[in-house]
């Protein structure tokens, strides 16, 4: 590939992934590479193996063949939790938050901080003050200006809720943030805001994998675009010197991939 010469080891890489469901081959030797501090979008028609690829990378499925490498080390994820333990966080399209809990409680859901000392040890008491302070720091890091971490998430707009989900992912991801259609449930203005958040996450040094159906959004925000077709990666292009219509042509098979990605 043309654009990898100056780059070091990929943060997350996949080689020759194969996944079959009965007679259907969802992944047919798919490769993948994500480099530090980039937003890599994955596009592909329905049935191209986009979501199977993402499931393999986030630990939701185990590929039949092939290899996944994290920072150059071969890994096997035994489930989404295992992938999370390896520092890969995912933001989902359907706003996976608990509406009645406050912002701090949502950011720390499942990873709560207990008080130090006997209150935390014997009574399992939470350190709500510290959780709110740290939640506030995470939200501020992404320039999300919400006044109180005690605000229930249901009082927020859809974009702000997704902001909470992004802040949670960014707070706990050590290697990669995966955004699975993060704007699908949002309006134009709110989508725009979430795209801003995605850039912020990258600018803070975390690479982002973005799955989206929205071509203009992809070409607006991505540094590179991975084009998936018939279970394989057919091209990787850079939006700044590639036409959206050509990317769509590769995606649908109207134009050959390999030749163009080199050009």
């Amino acid at each position: 590939m043309s654009d990898t010469t100056s780059n070091p080891t990929p943060v997350l890489e996949a080689r020759g992934l194969v996944k079959r469901y009965g007679h259907v081959t969802a992944l047919d030797g798919a490769d993948f590479a994500l480099y530090p501090s980039e937003i890599l979008a994955i596009i592909g028609d329905n049935g191209a193996g986009k979501s199977t690829l993402i499931k393999a990378l986030s630990g939701a499925i185990t590929p039949d063949e092939g290899e996944i490498l994290l920072d150059g080390q071969s890994v096997r994820f035994r489930g989404p939790l295992d992938a999370r333990r390896h520092g890969i966080e995912t933001v989902y399209q359907d706003l996976a938050v608990a509406p009645a809990l406050d912002i701090a409680e949502n950011i720390f859901l499942g990873r709560e901080i207990r008080l130090a000392g006997p209150l935390g040890f014997a009574f399992r008491m939470l350190d709500k003050r510290r959780m709110r302070r740290e939640a506030s720091d995470h939200m501020r890091d992404l320039n999300i200006g919400i006044r109180s971490m005690r605000q229930a998430v249901e009082t927020l707009s859809g974009g702000q809720r997704q902001g909470v989900a992004v802040a949670r992912a960014a707070a706990f991801a050590r290697h990669v943030v995966i955004m699975d259609e993060p704007t699908a449930a949002l309006g134009v203005k709110e989508s725009h805001m979430v795209l801003g958040l995605i850039r912020q996450v990258r600018d803070r040094g975390l690479p982002v994998i973005l799955i989206s159906h929205n071509m203009p959004q992809v070409f607006d925000v991505a540094d590179r675009v991975h084009i998936q077709r018939l279970g394989k990666r057919v091209a990787v292009v850079e939006p700044r010197n590639f036409k959206m219509s050509d990317a769509v042509a590769i995606m649908t098979g109207a134009m050959a991939g390999e030749a163009i990605s080199r050009g």
Binding site: R129, N143, I144, G145, I146, R147, G159, Q200
Partner: peptide
């Protein structure tokens, strides 16, 4: 991303 701050212009605080 600071568009998020529509309803509250102030900076994020914990309490």
């Amino acid at each position: 991303a600071s568009i998020v701050a529509e309803r509250s212009a102030g900076p994020a605080t914990a309490e």
